[in-house]
Design a protein around this nucleic acid. Structure first.
Length: 420
RNA sequence: GGAGAGAUGGCUGAGCGGUUGAAAGCACCGGUCUUGAAAACCGGCAAGGUGGCAACACCUUCCAGAGUUCGAAUCUCUGUCUCUCCGCCA
């Protein structure tokens, strides 16, 4: 959510910013609605003050057993005016909210301007592409050949975009998760949280998924929605609270399943487990003071990168351009891991600074020198577990169809050398 | 699922329908005292908004939403959540 004062004072700048995010200019319209709303409010409040005054005097007159019919008539007239003005105010307020709640965050000055993903900017990379003396297979070929990855049965149970992992692959998924959580809690200073997978509409509004992106989500039929990422419950942990400054920064990590309808991705990545309706992810979330958030984004990125480095997987980091960035972010780094089977880099983590955008929507503040200031929120995958599993299969595969177990995961496998 | 009780400021907790935005205590902040600290004492301490250069004035908010009333924390209805007892149950 945007600060209306900012829009009021910098309409052109605001329009220029949201233009880079693919939105049409709208500041003038916002200001016009806001103006009518505030004018209405001023008149309304004066009438309310008058009503309160008269009501008070009625109380006093009644105490003195005096006649109040004159006052009563006066109030009756004011009441009618109050009702019409109140309706108008609510109407304008709703209009304003409808617009503001659907406008994306303003990009950080270091975010490259661009329309589509082709204009994302290379930031850095790590490691080298592995070499093979055979033709590296795709992850699902490896999994299916080992009889440990099954899409057909999953489709029988749940339809398309689901998978069943069996035996060693199921265990690998669990080992990856444990490794990530252990690293983030023991080394990186994040607090592990176990959170609900079903949340209320209000919670999704806070992080920015609603009202605009309902199509990307699954509902549970009642008033609950399935989380598309643990970012949602973690970021909202302290919504509607005023924190003490010494509580910040807060760093949370959580392992959860994520549910996404993939509404806009029909026909995309239909083979394999790259794009599923359900996947698991270890999420990182930071709640920080405003002046810390830029630094925190780099820190978070490093924490996510560290996992891939430990797993010795080659990757690159790109900075998303304004047009490709998510709704709530002001700056986003994507980490893309190398998949030799596909011969492509694939997103495995996305780390975003949301500034005060989400904090405004969910009303999370902290007190400093008697002032209440919106915090900054950040989130990042640390990492997507399913895609990490894919990366391990494709990068660590051997000519005979087996898979070497990465050094750091061996302890979860009784020091075995190979997966199968 | 059945029966009952409740929801007030950071926390605990008062509150006959009419100076109650809300007593009191705790916590917190500032000060006096002290070598320092504690104790004691004094003072401050909800949020959002509108108007105003400002001082300041006013409005809204006592779970949420409707309603009754000249006037609602206080009365009525609906919803949400919490607690206790019973039933069922991982």
């Amino acid at each position: 959510m945007h600060n209306i004062n900012y829009i009021r004072e910098n309409p052109t700048e605001f329009d220029n910013f949201i233009k880079t995010r693919g939105e049409n200019p709208i500041a003038n319209k916002i200001i016009e609605i806001d103006k009518v709303k505030r004018e209405t409010q001023t008149i309304l409040q004066n009438l309310l003050a008058e009503r309160n005054q008269i009501s008070k005097s009625i109380g006093q007159l009644k105490n003195q057993k005096k006649d109040t019919t004159h006052e009563m008539e006066k109030v009756e007239d004011i009441k009618n005016k109050i009702n019409t003005l109140k309706e108008l105010e609510t109407l304008k307020d709703d209009e304003l909210k409808a617009i503001l709640s659907r406008l994306p965050n303003i990009p950080d000055s270091s975010t490259p301007v661009g329309a589509t993903e082709t204009e994302n900017v290379f930031y850095k990379d790590w490691g080298d592409k592995p070499t093979f003396d055979f033709n590296p297979k795709l992850h699902f070929e490896i999994g299916e050949n080992a009889n440990s990855m099954n899409f057909e049965t999953a489709t029988k149970l749940s339809g398309s975009r689901f998978v069943i992992l069996k035996g060693q692959l199921s265990k690998l998924e669990r080992a990856i998760t444990n490794f990530m959580i252990d690293k983030h809690t023991l080394v990186n200073g994040y607090v592990e949280m176990h959170v609900p997978y079903l949340v209320k509409e209000e919670t999704l509004y806070g992080t920015g998924q609603l009202p605009k992106f309902a199509d990307d989500l699954f509902t549970a039929g009642d008033d609950h929605w399935l989380i598309p990422t643990a970012e949602i419950p973690l970021t909202a942990l302290h919504s509607n609270e005023i924190l003490n400054i010494n509580q910040l920064p807060m760093r949370f990590t959580s392992y959860t399943p994520c549910f996404r309808s993939e509404a806009g991705a029909a026909g995309k990545d239909t083979r394999g487990m790259i794009r599923q309706h359900q996947f698991t992810k270890v999420e990182l979330v930071s709640l920080v003071e405003p002046q810390q958030s830029k630094e925190e984004l780099e820190r978070m990125l490093n924490c996510a990168e560290g996992i891939l480095q430990d797993l010795e997987l080659h990757y690159r980091v790109i900075t998303l351009c304004t047009g490709d960035m998510g709704f709530s972010a002001n700056k986003t780094y994507d980490i893309e891991v190398w998949l030799p089977g596909e011969g492509k880099y694939r997103e495995i983590s996305s780390c975003s600074n949301c500034g005060d955008f989400q904090a405004r929507r969910m009303n999370t503040r902290y007190k400093q020198n008697d002032k209440n200031i919106y915090i900054h929120t950040l989130n990042g995958s640390g990492l997507a577990v399913g895609r990490t599993l894919i990366a391990i299969l494709e990068n660590y595969q051997t000519a005979d169809g087996n898979v070497r177990i990465p050094k750091v995961l061996k302890k979860y496998f009784d020091n075995q050398e190979h997966l199968f």
